[in-house]
């Protein structure tokens, strides 16, 4: 659990604070997304947790303990850290990069190397192939996977991620996001995730903290509640005019009640159960149909699981609470 208690940051020589009286609590095992326009202090807020930046006022508690109760370097070794430009060490191999924090913590070599292999497997890079390469030999997406693996290396309970999937193309980013959410289901870290992209925030966050210029917390809630009940005009305009659609993107087709798929031919669009309702809506409208057949990933030749109709999607968009995928 991470608690911000009246945290403010004013840089010397500046009149206005970049973060103002920030108080909120991040629960264990949750991804808390800090999102907002540039200059809203989201990165500053994140960097105050591991004291890369020291707050001017207030305190930050990690599991009830003031984060100033130990030295900055000791604290940072216990907190995973991944950033947009990855910051991988160009002169160290992939395995050495991942082994950085375990090395600082004094693990023995065999344990570090087996941990590196384990993590490479976890992020989908075969260790045999990647262990001894240098970062420059990897694509941007692969480097970001290594960045995440490195942050996870010493199995820290808390992770800070500053636009960790920011520097790659949208398709790769989408894949990395999905893979990371999948990993998070198992590892249940407490994650502070900074992004400027509200869509990424809605997708990744259990909770979203929307900050506005001057470092003021505009709203802190679940993605659903922020989309349904924006707390202010600022939040409303920040989440955008398509918040109904964004809400649909929170739910996967496979998680809603489907209608029986009887009596319909091949003309209907095929909807993957892994897709979000938003994708399904787009596919159905695009095909000029009023419903689509839901199939399971990898078994598109098998029988459909059911049908999803425009009507049912409309009902969900109108507030009937759908389970989150």
């Amino acid at each position: 659990m991470i608690e911000f208690k009246g945290v403010s940051k004013t840089y010397p020589g500046m009149d206005t604070p970049v973060v103002r009286d920030l108080s909120f609590t991040i629960e264990d095992g949750e991804i808390c997304v800090l999102v907002g326009p540039s200059g809203c202090g989201k990165t500053t807020s994140m960097r105050m947790i591991n004291r890369l930046i020291e707050p001017t006022e207030g305190e930050i508690l990690i599991d009830g303990q003031d984060n100033t109760s130990m030295s900055g370097t000791q604290l940072r070794r216990k907190i995973g850290y991944a950033i947009q430009q990855t910051g991988l060490f160009p002169h160290r191999t992939i395995a050495d990069n991942i082994g950085t924090v375990p090395g600082l913590l004094g693990w023995d070599k065999a344990r570090i190397s087996s941990r590196a292999d384990e993590l490479l497997d976890l992020v989908g890079l075969p260790p045999d192939q990647y262990r001894d390469r240098y970062p420059a030999e990897l694509s941007g997406g692969q480097q970001q996977r290594v960045g995440v693996a490195r942050a996870l290396a010493a199995d820290p309970p808390v992770m800070l991620m500053d636009e960790p999937f920011g520097a790659v193309d949208p398709i790769t980013r989408d894949r990395l996001q999905n893979e990371f959410l999948h990993i998070q289901e198992n590892i249940k870290k407490t994650i502070v995730f900074v992004t400027h992209d509200i869509d990424e925030g809605i997708k990744m966050g259990n909770k979203i903290a929307i900050l506005k210029e001057g470092g003021i917390l505009a709203q802190y809630d679940t993605p659903e509640n922020i989309l349904v009940n924006p707390a202010s005009e600022f939040v409303q305009s920040f989440v955008g005019g398509d918040r109904v659609l964004k809400r649909l993107s929170l739910t996967r087709v496979g998680d809603v009640d489907l209608e029986p798929a009887n009596g319909h031919g091949d003309a209907l669009p095929r909807i993957n159960a892994e897709w979000t309702l938003r994708d399904a809506l787009s596919e159905i409208i695009g095909a000029g149909a009023d419903r689509g057949l839901v199939v399971t990933d990898g078994e598109s030749n098998g029988g459909p699981r059911g049908a999803i109709t425009l009507d049912s999607i409309r009902k969900i968009s109108h507030g009937a609470r759908a389970p989150r995928g």
Binding site: L52, I83, T100
Partner: peptide
């Protein structure tokens, strides 16, 4: 030496001296 490399080093808990000898000088 790329600033993000130094930032990552600091963020992972290397001391200033470790950053100098393990990251900055080699690079």
């Amino acid at each position: 030496v790329p600033p993000e490399t130094k930032d990552a080093a600091r963020g992972m808990g290397l001391t200033d001296r470790q950053i100098l000898w393990r990251v900055e000088i080699p690079l």
